[in-house]
Design a protein around this nucleic acid. Structure first.
Lengths: 375, 375
DNA sequence: CTGAAAGCGCTTACAG
DNA sequence: CTGAAAGCGCTTACAG
C-alpha cells in the first residue's frame, strides 16, 4: 500500500505512541522541563549527561526524532529554506544547460550550509500566485524568469527577505563579479587576428520589452541591452571591432540567432564572422548557414558566449567564453547566505559588517572550431 | 547593494511600518478581531464587504502582504512543501536526463496543486543529516538515491509522512503502473523477427549490493534484480528469448554497459544482439563495439530502455522503450497528493476512500537504428 | 545545571 | 456576521 506504511514498525520501540510525539511529551516522560529537553537536542546549552541521557531515552522509546522543524522555524524565525523562482529552467533542459548547472550549484551550496532549496514558478496565474504566498523561505534567488516577473518581483520585494535576481538582467552583478568584457575582448581580438575584417554583431535585449528582431545600430542596441550584454559588447569595442552590421535578437533562442544570420548575410557587405553574446544564438547562426549550404567556419565564422553543450552541432564546437554554471551557482548562494547572516545580525540590533566585494567568476576562453583563419 | 533594498519603496504606502507587520497588527488597525482579519485573507468564512474592505485597506497601508506562511503552517499543520530527496539528479544532468524530466514533472504537478518542491540530498554526512532534520515538508519523494539510503530511509520513515521512493527499486510500482514487460516483449519480438538467433542479455542489480559486474545465469540475475528490471526481463522471456549469455551490470552507467559487451562478445558463441534494460548500458555497448572496430548495428545490434538522449552516439538512435519522464513525475506527484489528502481525512477522524489503482504510464517503442536485419 | 513562562504568527472550533 | 481564546511545537531570555 502506501510506502510509509510498508516501512512502519522498523524504527519503533515497544511503547511507541506514534501519533505526533512532541517535545513537551518527551520532556514530561523524562521528568524535565521543555527547555531542558529542547537543549538536549539543540546543544545550545550544557545539560547534565545523566539528564540528557534520560531525555534521549524517553525520546527513543516514544519514537521522537527530534524537534519539529515547524516549531523550530516559528520560534526562531528561520525556516532554513531558500526559494528559487524559476520557470524556463526545467521546461526544456536541453536548451538551457547553464541554468541547470547554476541550479545545481545553488542547491549544493545551500544544502551544505543547512538550507533546503524550494523550487517555485514565477507568478503567472492563480495557482502560482497561491503558491508564492504559501511557500516559506528565508531568502530568494530568481533565475531566468523571462515571464511573469511583473507580478513576481514586487511580491518578492514585499516579503522583505534577501533576494538575488540571477537572470542576467537586473542585479546579477551584485552577487557575482564577471569580467565579461575582458573575455569578449580577447575573443574578438583572436577573430581579428584570424584575418576577419567584415564582422557582424548579434546581441539580445529582452523579448519582454517587445522589441522585435531586426537590424539596428550599435548605439541603439547598446542602449537597450541588459547590463551583462553591455559588458560583452564593451569587449568587442575594446578589441577594435567596427561592425558592418548589427542585429537585435528579440529572444534568446536558436531561431533568433538564425534570423540574425539571415539578416546580416543579406547586407551588401556581408560579414565573414558574426559575434554573438550567447551560444544558442551562435547555434542558430550555424543552423541558418547550413540551410543555405554555407560551410562553417570556411564560409561563415561565428562566436558565442557560455560554452554550453548544444545539440545538433555535428561535432562543431562553438568558439566561446566558458561560464561555469555550477561555480556561479555556488558563488551566488554564498552571497545570499552572507546577506542572510547580515540580516540576522541586524535583527538582533547589531550592525553587520559590510558584505564586501562579490566573488569573481573566471571566464576562460574556449577556442572551438567555428572561426576560420582567412588569408 | 542588496537587491531587496534597491527595490524597496515600490509597493509601500505612506505610513509603511515595515518591520514585521502581523495579522494582529492589521486587525487592530482595522478595529476587528484577529479571526475576522484572518478570514478576510483565507476566505474560509464570509466577512461583511465593508469590514473586509477596512481590513484590506489597513493591510495595504501597512505593507502587509498576507498571513505569514510560517504562522499558517504551524496553525494548520500543513507546510505545503514536498521534499524531493535526490543526489545524482543534478550532479551530472547529461547522464540522467530521465531523472531530470521526472523532477520537472514532479515540480510542475506539485506547483499546480499549491505545493513547493524542496530539494535535499540524501544523508551521507553531518551537513546532510542536519539538513534532513531541519527541512519542513508534508510528504517525500526520493529519486535515484543510489547512495546514503541506509540512514536516509529509516529517517524518512520516522517522519511518518507520505513517502514514495522513486528509484526503480523498492516501491516505485505503488505509485505508477508501468507495463515494462509488455514493452520489452514487443521489442524482443522485433529483434527475433529481424533474424537474430544468438541473443545476449545485460541487466543491472544495484551496486549497493556490492555484486560485481560479471557473467552469470539468467536465474541468478533475475533473483537479484530490482522489480522493474524483473519485469523487463519477463518481457524477454515471454518473447521466447533464450540468451546465449547473461551479464550482471553492477552499476547503471556506460562503463558497465561496455563491460557487458566485452564479456558477452568474448563468449564462444557471441551474441549478434545484446538486450539491455537501460539506454546508458546500450550506449556503453556501442562504446565498446566502436573501440573494437565493430559496426553497429551490422556487426552488433543492441537495444535499451528509457529512450533518453545520450551524448556521443554519432547519429545512432538506440532501439528502446520510451519512458516519458515528465509524465511519470506528474503521475507520481498526483499519487503523493492523493496520499496527502487521505492522510488529512484520517487526521480529522474520518476514513479516507482507498487510493485505487495507480495511473498507468504508456511505454511506446522507439525503433531506432541499432538493430540490423540479419539474413 | 535546570525550570517556568512568554512568545513566534497564525487558524479554528466555540460562542454569540 | 463577528469575537475571545485556545493551541499548533517549539526557542529563548529571565530566574534561580
Amino acid at each position: 500500500m502506501a510506502p510509509s506504511l510498508e516501512r512502519k514498525g522498523e524504527g519503533e520501540e515497544a511503547m511507541a505512541e506514534n501519533r505526533h510525539v512532541t517535545l513537551a511529551a518527551v520532556a514530561k516522560a523524562a521528568g524535565v522541563a521543555k527547555s531542558t529537553a529542547s537543549h538536549v537536542f539543540t546543544g545550545k546549552r550544557v545539560v547534565a549527561p545523566e539528564t540528557a541521557e534520560r531525555v534521549r531515552h524517553a525520546a527513543a522509546a516514544m519514537g521522537y526524532t527530534g524537534p519539529s522543524p515547524l516549531g523550530r522555524a516559528l520560534a526562531s524565525g528561520r525556516t532554513h529554506l531558500i526559494a528559487v523562482v524559476t520557470h524556463a529552467l526545467l521546461e526544456d533542459p536541453d536548451t538551457d544547460p547553464l541554468s541547470l548547472a547554476i541550479l545545481d550549484g545553488l542547491q549544493r551550496e545551500f544544502a551544505e550550509a543547512g538550507y533546503g532549496t524550494v523550487l517555485i514558478p514565477p507568478i503567472t496565474d492563480e495557482s502560482s500566485r497561491v503558491l508564492a504566498h504559501t511557500v516559506l523561505y528565508d531568502g530568494v534567488v530568481s533565475v531566468r524568469r523571462m515571464v511573469g516577473f511583473e507580478e513576481t518581483d514586487p511580491y518578492l520585494a514585499s516579503r522583505k527577505v534577501p533576494w538575488i535576481a540571477l537572470d542576467g538582467y537586473m542585479n546579477e552583478e551584485t552577487a557575482v563579479y564577471m569580467d565579461d568584457a575582458k573575455a569578449t575582448e580577447e575573443l574578438a581580438r583572436r577573430v581579428i587576428a584570424a584575418g576577419h575584417e567584415r564582422i557582424g554583431i548579434a546581441a539580445y535585449t529582452f523579448a519582454v520589452e517587445e522589441r522585435p528582431d531586426g537590424l539596428t545600430t550599435f548605439e541603439e542596441l547598446y542602449a537597450s541591452a541588459p547590463n551583462n550584454v553591455k559588458r560583452r559588447l564593451d569587449g568587442f569595442v575594446r578589441a577594435g571591432v567596427e561592425p558592418v552590421g548589427v542585429f537585435r535578437c528579440g529572444s534568446v533562442n536558436r531561431a533568433s540567432g538564425a534570423a540574425a544570420a539571415e539578416a546580416l548575410l543579406g547586407l551588401e557587405e556581408p560579414p565573414t564572422c558574426i559575434l554573438t553574446v550567447a551560444d544558442v544564438h551562435a547555434a542558430g547562426v550555424i543552423d541558418h548557414a547550413r540551410r543555405r549550404g554555407l560551410r562553417v567556419p570556411e564560409d561563415l565564422s561565428v562566436t558565442g558566449f557560455d560554452a554550453v553543450s548544444i545539440a545538433g552541432l555535428d561535432g562543431d564546437e562553438i568558439c566561446s567564453v566558458t561560464q561555469d554554471g555550477v561555480q556561479k551557482g555556488r558563488i551566488v548562494a554564498r552571497r545570499l547566505l552572507a546577506m542572510l547572516a547580515a540580516e540576522a545580525v541586524r535583527r538582533e540590533g547589531g550592525t553587520p559588517s559590510p558584505l564586501g566585494e562579490p566573488e569573481e567568476l573566471e571566464l576562460p576562453l574556449r577556442w572551438g572550431t567555428t572561426v576560420a583563419t582567412r588569408e
